[in-house]
């Protein structure tokens, strides 16, 4: 066992390559995210940003390179990987709440089955989290009975219930009706303020400006820009980023 010091990056991605068949989706990605940093990943669709996000808790395998979370290299499929995933919160574009369980049962399933918390304790903690994301009154309903924004906030509560070291957001607002985007972004901004380490794949420029410490711009499987939000939005270095910003900011 190596000593994990506080300056071990929360996430370290070294020389990662990934192919889908003949398509080279991640090209020699190198990335370190220190603890407490909020990183927003931008880029056109097909740029590999969602794949990068899913590689970090091994929902996608990689073809070469290495990924480490809090100094621990991602293990092969099995118990050790499950333990590591418990420490990495994940929020999906399509929410993916367990359709056959009530909202509170969605939130407490992991703590009870993985963290071995008692039912009452897990429920108390779960209700605290649901209050925090503003949907405590929906606790006994099923996911299909909630609006998209409520479902996504429930999904965030479910991830937080595991007390993760880092949170991954894979386009968390892309499937939402416009009027529900803000309620989700507010919860995320709150987390960022509290010092949670976050990687957010998103198209929400406002959120990137307001809450991000760092912006990654990806295109064609490569990290093209890696800068502060101010630098990225006000004076992007690459033609591709200028082109991208021109397309999304004009309307």
């Amino acid at each position: 066992m190596t000593e994990v010091s506080t300056d071990t990056p929360m996430i370290r991605v070294s020389a990662v390559d990934k192919y889908f068949g003949s398509l080279h989706v991640l090209k020699d990605i190198n990335l370190e995210i220190p603890r407490g940093q909020v990183v927003v990943v931008l880029g056109p669709s097909g740029s590999g940003k969602s794949t990068l996000c899913r590689v970090l808790n091994r929902l996608e395998t990689i073809d070469s390179g290495a990924v480490a979370v809090d100094g621990v290299p991602l293990p092969e499929e099995g118990r050790a990987l499950a333990e590591l995933r418990a420490d990495v919160g994940m929020v999906f574009q399509q929410f993916n709440l367990f359709a056959h369980k009530s909202i509170i049962d969605n939130v407490t399933l992991g703590p009870i089955k993985v963290r071995k918390l008692g039912k009452d304790e897990a429920r108390e903690e779960g209700m605290r989290l649901l209050r925090r994301v503003g949907i405590a009154d929906q606790a006994e309903k099923y996911p299909a009975q909630l609006s998209g924004g409520q479902q996504q906030r429930a999904a965030i509560a479910r991830a937080l219930a595991m007390r993760p070291k880092v949170m991954l957001f894979d386009e968390p607002t892309s499937a939402l009706d416009p009027e529900m985007v803000n309620e989700v972004l507010e919860v995320m901004a709150g987390l960022a303020d509290e010092g949670m380490t976050m990687l957010v794949v998103s198209h929400e420029m406002g959120f990137a400006r307001r809450a991000a410490h760092r912006v990654l711009f990806m295109a064609d499987g490569e990290v093209v820009e890696d800068s502060s939000p101010e630098t990225f939005f006000d004076s992007p270095g690459s033609e591709r980023a200028k082109d991208f910003l021109g397309k999304i900011l004009t309307h």
Binding site: L59, A82, V88, G89, M90, N96, G110, K113, V114, R158
Partner: peptide, 16 residues
Amino acid sequence: VSPGQAEAARSVGLGF
């Protein structure tokens, strides 16, 4: 069953 259900389950640390 949608594959997202299994992905979400694995993401909270449930085993296979």
